[in-house]
Amino acid sequence: METDIEIENEQAMEAAAQRLAGYLENGDIVLLHGPLGAGKSVFARALIRTLSGDPALEVPSPTFTLVQYYESEKGPLWHYDLYRIEDYEEILPLGWEDSLADGITIVEWPERLGPLKPLHALDIHIHPVQDKPEKRILRMDSDRLSV
C-alpha cells in the first residue's frame, strides 16, 4: 500500500529522514525520486547525518563526484547522485555492486538505474505541492516500511 506523508517544511523533511534512519539496516537501499529542487539532497543529508551519528557531518552534493562514501555503526553508507548518468552501464564502474554487498545505499535520480534497479529497494517519491513552496508530499510503499 502506498502511503502519503505530508511534509510542511525543510525541518519536517529532516525529521522524516531521521525517523527512517532508525529503521534502516545494512543491505537496505533507499531510492529518492523527485524533480530538481524537490529536496532529495535535504532528505539524504539528514539520513546520512543520523546514520553516521554526526549531526555536523559534511555531506556535499554528489552531483560532481557521483558517489560519496561515509561510515556508520550499521556499515558503510553510499550516497549516489545519478543526475549526470545517461546510460546505466556507467553506474557499475562507480562500485555499485560493492555498495549493494555491504552497506546502506541512498540514491538520488534512481530513474537512471534502469535494469539495475534493485527489486527490494524502498522507493520514496518527493512531490512538490503547487502554490505551497515549502510543502512536499512523501509517497512510499508502506508494506515495506512504516515510518
Binding site: 530538481l36 529542487g37 539532497s41 543529508r45 559534511e58 556535499p60 552534493s61 552531483t63 560532481f64
Partner: peptide, 18 residues
C-alpha cells in the same frame, strides 16, 4: 568557507536545465 550543498556552477547548470 564552503558550500553546504551544491556548488555555484552546479546551481548555474541545474537552473539552466530547469
Amino acid at each position: 568557507g564552503t558550500t553546504l550543498d551544491d556548488a555555484a556552477g552546479e546551481c548555474f547548470d541545474k537552473a539552466a536545465k530547469l
